[in-house]
Design a protein around this nucleic acid. Structure first.
Lengths: 189, 189
DNA sequence: TAAACTTCTTGATTTTTGTCAAGAGCAAGC
DNA sequence: GCTTGCTCTTGACAAAAATCAAGAAGTTTA
């Protein structure tokens, strides 16, 4: 059983037979560092599962890049609004390192519901879970200082700081690279 | 056709027969100013639709109230994580004014799927839409100053500033009441 | 109506965070 | 090995926002 199947089993509680059916829709691709999985303005016609490597979701706001999320092994990468509503993508998704992804095309994704009747329900639960994660994130910005947000991420996912250029983490945390640099220094001392 | 039915028709595209079936599950309640629709730590066993009045969703963070959202006419009020996953509620939902709500109990809500086969799909789409709204909100905090966030809300929903104590709007915008007060003064001049 | 609250504003000050500029450290490619 | 970028850090300073304290304005309650 590969990582994708493990993940789907863990989060969706699908049994082995169905797992095989689902994962057979996926196919592997690789991305080189710097490649785009999705560009803002395009249509997200596929969903990716990160087998290895790191990607970041970002957008330009007045010529400045704002990173919304960093995806590592075990994450799905997609622009949900584009994939679900067939609108143009709001986010760029770019490989920060060479990546291996398992990818499913939108038209195949829609077949899953025919294979697994409960799929729409599982999707709903998954998206609801994602919603609560974003709720927490909003709350963090409403109630925490830059320092507290940094500490929270650092304690939750320490290795990220060794894998990802700090400027992107700073942006994801809602602060400048300089501020992050100073917070890190402060914590060491 | 009442407000609830109009809303469901607009956002879910359900036809008239089904609409009547769905809305028959709802029953009206009233809340007095200050009453709680939901308290953190309880289980959200019902979903409300705001017919009139204003409610706010908030939580205490270190003895300080943090307001996540203000719900007015036409909004659903619920703690999604509690309603969907039957966990304890993460948010308090309190009436800021006397309110009229249409409410559906969780066990009745689950019957909608039997009446309308496509319901789970519609739910999924609705939650996905809510997800994108939160995505925007996170982006606002990553890329905008307090002043810009204030202006955005003010331009989007001006009347809110006449209906809701400003301290709650300040909290929802991620700033102190003093800062909001000064921004408002600055804009008038 | 007066007292008691609550809410909002204002001023003074401090803290936090951003901006700008320079340079250090490193890695990739020629 | 040497250049060329890229990333990160640091310092000086500016701007933004928070805190603290006081008081004004408006509402509710007795």
């Amino acid at each position: 059983m590969n990582e994708l199947e493990k993940y789907i089993q863990t989060y969706f509680g699908v049994d082995k037979d169905d797992l095989t059916k689902i994962s057979s829709f996926f196919y592997p691709i690789t991305l080189k560092k710097g490649d785009y999985f999705l560009k803002k303005g395009m249509y997200a016609d596929r969903l990716g599962f990160v087998q290895s490597g790191i990607l970041r979701e970002f957008v330009f706001v007045e010529d400045r890049e704002v990173t919304k999320w960093i995806s590592t092994k075990g994450y799905f990468v997609v622009d949900l609004s584009s994939f679900v509503f067939q609108q143009t993508a709001r986010w760029n998704i770019q490989a920060l390192t060479d990546c291996e992804l398992y990818v499913i095309d939108r038209k195949d994704y829609q077949k899953i519901g025919q294979v697994i009747p409960r799929w729409t329900e599982l999707e709903k639960l998954f998206i609801a879970k994602c919603f609560t994660v974003l709720e927490d994130r909003v709350l963090q910005h409403l109630s925490m200082t830059a320092e507290e947000r940094y500490l929270q991420l650092f304690n939750f996912n320490r290795e990220l700081f060794n894998l990802v250029p700090l400027q992107y983490l700073a942006s994801m945390l809602g602060m400048t690279p300089e501020t992050l640099s100073r917070l890190r220094k402060k914590m060491v001392n």
